[in-house]
Write a protein that binds this DNA or RNA. Structure first.
Lengths: 221, 221
DNA sequence: CCGATGACTTTGACTAATCAAAATAAGAAT
DNA sequence: ATTCTTATTTTGATTAGTCAAAGTCATCGG
């Protein structure tokens, strides 16, 4: 059994690999993602390599092996199914479930996970729009998506995913009505002012800074 | 935050204290309950004493302080609410929830626990008939109960609680229909044969050995 | 080509939890 | 009262995960 710590390293590694597909993940990136000092990451990665979960190239970086990726996907599946369950069944707020799931993802058995999956009717995305990896087989290919910061004025988009899952940002996003599934019209974009103005269907228009807009992914509609 | 290990020691200590109210718990008992060697229990208990969770008398034994008891009750509450939730909401089998809850009891936040409690409508006992400690205040006094092994032939009783929570025993008990809440008639008792014969309302009569009968607590009806 | 910079690795130390085995204490038995 | 037994405590070692700080390497700018 992989410890929670190991599961977290593999999960972060997977997420980092998603950000830069193909590349090795540097120790610095991994250490930052795990909130540990670089030396700790090095030590841990060497242990993971000994278990065959990652392949490690000293001073080059690290990447998941097939086995490590399987495990990472399983952790991610637990995390995201739990998030959705907390929202849909237990009625928790969107903004609080990430941290809760962070703990629960290590404590939930396959049996319980299957029940949750069935009750939710085999969902494909979590409340933030993140894809839920399937129980077996490859994850769904992620359709190419642009962020709100890269949209053209005058067109409409559907919110697909919110990257920043901190409670503060999620609360803000919900207050604006920019939750996944909602259609938004891009009203204005002002590069000089570093902002975009969007109007969610049936809501008030809001102006976002580019940094915030980059954290909201959309698809054309 | 108390680690899972600390939570488990406190929980076992509480359960041992219930078995022999008033007495100090011996290191041997505690070590056995925790499946560790006695030396480990001694070390741990000294640490718990330093944190003010137990009072420890070398070569005498250990007992929970007020604070330690509060924490133990909180763990027990989580455990038992989770068990009930797994049965009632997720539809898991009675016999499997104990082990699941053993993990989950350390991962569930107060917020999630409150939601579970509300959804279950503030239950007072778990699926095995064990009382669920309230969120605050003293636990409900446990009404005096006898085991099936001490019942009189010809009378009727209601099953209140099943002590042995191993999957095998729970599966057996359910197959017989001796689940908490069910009324049973005591048909015969044969001390020489070390057995009792009981008939659950609307079911087949079963003969239990005394050891098994002692693990089923009942109340007069 | 050479030194400076910054990323990475190594080393030594620490905490929590554990075990094996030796030492000790307290009661029971002779 | 002395020995024996048995529970308990101590000691020394181990594993997982971590940090601080010292050491190493590669590359980039001159």
């Amino acid at each position: 059994m992989a410890s929670s710590t190991v599961e977290n390293y593999l999960k972060q590694l997977y997420l980092e690999q998603q950000n830069a597909p193909g590349d090795l993940v540097s120790m610095g990136k991994l250490a930052a993602a795990m909130s540990v000092v670089p030396g700790t990451a090095t030590t841990m990665v060497k242990a993971l390599a000994d278990s065959g979960l990652v392949s490690y190239e000293p001073r080059g970086g690290v990447k998941l092996t097939r086995g490590g990726e399987q495990l990472a996907l399983h952790v991610l599946r637990r995390h995201r199914l739990v998030e959705l369950f907390l929202v849909k069944v237990l009625g928790l707020d969107w903004s609080e479930v990430h941290d809760e799931a962070e703990e629960l993802e290590h404590a939930i058995s396959d049996k319980v996970l299957d029940r949750i999956d069935a009750i939710l009717e085999h969902p494909r995305v979590d409340p933030h729009g993140d894809p839920i990896p399937p129980a077996k087989g490859r994850p769904q290919p992620v359709p190419p998506r642009q962020s709100l910061a890269d949209c053209e004025p005058g067109r409409s988009y559907r919110v697909a995913r919110v990257i920043d899952q901190s409670p503060a940002f999620l609360q803000f996003v919900r207050r604006c009505g920019l939750v996944p599934g909602v259609t938004v019209a891009l009203e204005r974009r002002d590069d000089a002012a570093d902002s975009v103005r969007v109007r969610p269907a049936g809501g008030e228009a809001v102006t976002l800074g580019t940094a915030a807009a980059m954290k909201v992914l959309v698809e054309s509609v």
